[in-house]
Computed example of a mutant assay.
Amino acid sequence: MTDGRLYPEEPAGSFPTPPATVADREGRSIELRTIDGGDADDREALVEMYVRFDPTDRAQGIPPTGEDRVRDWIETIAPEGIHVVAVHEGEVAGHATLVPESDDPEAIEEPAGITWELAIFVLAAYQQAGIGTHLLEHLLGHAEGLGVERVWLTVERWNAPAIGLYESVGFERCGTESFEQEMAIRLA
């Protein structure tokens, strides 16, 4: 199955898998772990993080603002998505997710057969501390272990720090649309 995107021919290197505890650049102990998008407590932890999310850090309209809209969005992406969170002192400080490009539950059971869209968000107080890199690497490692092969994302073309982060783990630029840069990676 092809989605029309150009994916790198060679898989990126392997990535670490959660759970893990890392120290960020500020010396904070950050726990990286998977969550179950179908679990009400895990979804509630995401809602709490996104309600605290600075609206000026939103990209391409997500995450939404307002608790009700955040809950609706989490309900949309959580059940079938693959999720890794960064936790500091019991609170979610960052979230990386892969959302399947299929509504067919049978297709999702075979993750190599579909493509997955990546989204990553880190609370402002934790940005520029390396947490995004850890989240991204551990999400890709977890996805790789589940059999995911093709991941893509879009990022605003002016967001050089995000593009640099994605390129540092193996994403390649593969297309553009107006103000968005499309990037893709192939996992082993």
Rank of each mutant, 00 (worst) to 15 (best):
L165E: 12
A125E: 15
S29T: 14
R33N: 02
Y126R: 02
E89L: 13
E110M: 14
Q60H: 12
P18A: 15
G170P: 01
L135Y: 01
R186G: 11
I35M: 06
G61A: 02
Q127T: 14
E44Y: 08
F53H: 12
G147P: 07
R52S: 11
A59K: 06
T76Q: 15
A129V: 03
R5F: 14
P79L: 14
E48G: 09
F171S: 01
T133E: 14
T76K: 13
M1L: 10
E9K: 04
W158N: 12
H138S: 07
M183V: 09
T65W: 07
L98C: 10
P105M: 05
V84H: 02
G61E: 08
E31K: 11
P8S: 08
A188E: 14
D104V: 09
D36L: 10
A184N: 07
V84A: 04
D54L: 11
M49D: 01
R69W: 01
A20P: 00
D42L: 06
V169P: 00
A125R: 15
E9F: 11
L146H: 10
V70Y: 00
E26D: 13
F15C: 05
I77H: 03
E9N: 08
E172W: 05
I163V: 14
H83E: 04
E67F: 07
E110H: 14
R150T: 09
G90F: 03
E9S: 13
G175N: 10
A129N: 03
H95T: 01
S14A: 15
E26N: 11
P161H: 06
L187F: 07
F179K: 13
I77C: 05
G147D: 04
D41S: 15
R71F: 04
V122D: 03
N159D: 03
P18D: 10
D68A: 15
S178K: 13
D42A: 08
Q181G: 11
P100K: 00
V151H: 00
P11V: 00
T56M: 12
R25C: 00
T133C: 04
I108P: 05
Q181H: 11
Q181R: 07
